[in-house]
Write a protein that binds this DNA or RNA. Structure first.
Length: 534
DNA sequence: AATCGCCCCAACCGCGACCTA
DNA sequence: CTAGGTCGCGGTTGGGGCGAT
């Protein structure tokens, strides 16, 4: 086992009283047994030696550096030094505003995946980005500013919003996010090129199972431009303030090319065309208009995805179900219940007092009933004409819905794991979203703002599957029910009385008609109005 | 001028994935 | 199949810089 010792300065003052093991992964141990390895800042001489070595031998095989050069540095240290400081392609200096903006976007999308973020920032290292985030961005927490700009906080998806609220927005314990971020969630690579949406093909080797559900670009949400709503104060220092987002006038046009691609893909996938409704003036049939049938980028699991080779099993997997809370994969859990004969504990009236699994199962039950309700309504003759906007699509959707809900259906059995995030229920939502995106958008003006941002910036789509553990907090679950009743007022609060009322008017009908409460992001702490939050 | 406290960032550390014998 | 080696990633630390008092 090699020993790393600290050096106080470039003068070479070595401290031998720190017989630290080199590292836990034995990086360089084998070649450094019995030797004393330097730690601490690198000297220019050491840098020169390392540079010379890399020029001769190339990168890699870092443990051989000491052998060949006599450098008293472990391979790990050499690699780090080279990668972070000596690489010729490194870009020095402060981050540009564009880079800062990109980092924020990437972080909102990926979480603490610094290396992957660095891949989108040429010349920048993961360490740089990490330090940047940990300092410049997180200091916003101390100042009571949201980590994410108002554009993201309002326009982001519900799940993202929850994430921000729960763990990142105002100095909360970011570990709640990190837990999930380190919980095996993988996100597809997304290129941010001048803020246009250009997802790369998913890296199957790198991405895990999430690729299956939302990693495929062809299943990204199809969302036309819609009005941008915000009443959040702009942070003048916010690098994203120059997005131009937030208002309809400022909002870039919906990427028609993207939508066309999506339509084509959807047509290929489902055998029908998605009518693009630039005015999105119609409402979907039978969809709870306040429900979270948001075009959130959840991809349908109905289509087997090539490359679904590795199925990681996150400990927390939820989906937006539109009924107040994060719900587990409905059908999967229903299947569990039917398989094991599980019923919610009698003494457990609500998920708020149950454990996680119980909460999930409880919600699964609720969702099951809701879906039955939805299905009944969808097939009944009491549907108002205003609800019926595209009967053909609905018919397809309903049939497909049944297929999804049938665990044995060919459409619904694409799930390899009972907790696969790409559950059929998930697919139901996704399918409906994909079929009726425009009208659903119209029906949920608040979510509209999220999808606007998602569409505009081409990000956050895959973030949907990141479910902060904090969002399962019982308090929030409890709040969601009561908040649903206050949705109108809450909407007013967030969006402003005039706009909120107008929006509520447009959405109230179907809410009452279905009798389903919902939980939009405004049932959570108003992120952008929590400047007094500790 | 001295001290204190905060900020920043380079470097370290632990862990896990991957590869190979 | 297993163990060891290699490497990458994300979290954390510690010291220097700098401004406030």
């Amino acid at each position: 086992m090699g020993r790393c010792i600290s050096n106080e300065s470039e003068g070479g003052l070595l401290s031998t009283d720190s017989p630290l093991s080199n590292d836990g992964d034995n990086f360089g141990d084998s070649s450094n047994r019995g030797s004393i390895l330097k730690k601490g800042p690198w000297t220019t001489a050491e840098d020169a030696i390392l540079i010379d070595y890399v020029k001769k031998h190339g990168e890699g095989n870092w443990n051989a550096v000491q052998k060949h050069t006599g450098l008293s540095r472990c391979g790990k240290s050499c690699r780090l030094r080279w990668a972070n400081h000596l690489r010729p392609d490194l870009k020095k200096g402060a981050f540009t505003s564009e880079e800062e903006r990109l980092i924020i976007e990437l972080h909102a999308n990926m979480g603490n995946k610094w290396a992957r973020m660095a891949a989108h920032l040429p010349g920048r290292t993961d360490n740089e980005i990490k330090n940047y985030w940990n300092t410049r961005i997180k200091r916003r927490q101390r100042a009571g500013l949201p980590l994410y700009p108002p554009e993201l906080c309002l326009e982001g998806p519900l799940e993202n919003q929850q994430s921000l609220n729960s763990c990142a927005m105002y100095g909360g314990d970011t570990r709640s996010c990190d837990i999930l971020q380190s919980n095996g969630y993988k996100t597809p690579d997304i290129m941010f090129d001048s803020l246009t949406y250009a997802p790369k093909l998913p890296d199957i080797s790198d991405s895990g199972s999430l690729i299956n559900c939302f990693g495929c670009p062809q299943y990204y949400s199809f969302v036309p431009q819609s009005i941008g709503l915000q009443k959040c104060p702009q942070d003048p220092d916010e690098p994203m303030s120059d997005y131009g987002g937030g208002t309809a006038a400022e909002t870039p046009s919906f990427d028609r090319a993207h939508s066309d691609n999506f339509e084509n893909r959807m047509s290929q996938s489902f055998g029908f065309c998605i009518p693009y409704d630039p005015d999105h003036t119609e409402l979907p049939l039978g969809i709870n208009q306040d429900s979270h049938f948001t075009p959130n980028g959840f991809s349908s699991a109905s289509k087997p995805i090539a490359g679904a080779e590795k199925s990681e099993l996150p400990s927390l997997q939820y989906q937006v179900n539109g009924f107040d809370v994060w719900n587990p994969a409905h059908e999967s859990l229903e299947f569990i219940q039917s398989s094991i004969g599980w019923t919610p504990p009698s003494g457990c009236p609500s998920p708020s007092s149950c454990g996680l699994l119980e909460a999930l199962l409880y919600e699964a039950n609720a969702l099951s009933q809701s879906w039955n309700q939805f299905s009944d309504k969808a097939t009944s003759s009491t549907i108002s004409a205003s609800d019926i906007t595209d009967s053909s699509v609905l018919k397809t959707s309903s049939q497909e819905l049944k297929g999804y809900l049938d665990p044995l259906s060919s459409l619904g059995n694409s799930v390899g794991s009972i907790f696969n995030e790409c559950s059929p229920a998930h697919a139901v939502v996704s399918s409906l979203e994909e079929k009726l995106p425009v009208r659903i958008l119209k029906s949920e003006p608040v979510d509209q703002s999220w999808v606007l941002d998602r569409e505009r910036n081409g990000i956050l789509n895959d973030f949907d599957c990141i479910r902060p553990a904090a969002t399962l907090g019982s308090c929030w679950l409890e709040q969601s029910a009561s908040f649903a009743k206050q949705q109108a007022s809450a909407t007013d609060y967030i969006l402003g009385d005039d706009l909120g009322s107008e929006l509520n008017m447009s959405s109230g009908t179907s809410v009452s008609s279905l009798g389903l409460s919902s939980c939009t992001w405004n049932t959570m702490p108003a992120a952008c109005q929590m400047s007094d939050h500790p």
